[in-house]
Amino acid sequence: MRRMVRSEGYARARLINALIFAALGAAICYRTVAAARLSLTALPGVVLGLALIGLAVVRFRAYARTKRS
């Protein structure tokens, strides 16, 4: 398991994961704002979308760090 976690294939899988998270986050933000406009009702959905994008950034940085090392 630990060997798999350290492999480049795993890092690439996480990169793909990051892209999916980013796309999902953007889609959730867009759909929520489209439905609720920029109101307080939209806030939880927008934060969810932003958190997904944030996780994508963390994953991408982890991938970049693995690539460097």
Binding site: P44, L52, A62
Partner: peptide, 20 residues
């Protein structure tokens, strides 16, 4: 710090996503 930030975001996302 590396594992914690990922963990914090993952848990936050799951909680917000399930409730929404």
């Amino acid at each position: 710090p590396r594992s914690s930030i990922g963990l914090i975001l993952t848990i936050l996302i799951f909680a917000l996503a399930y409730s929404n």
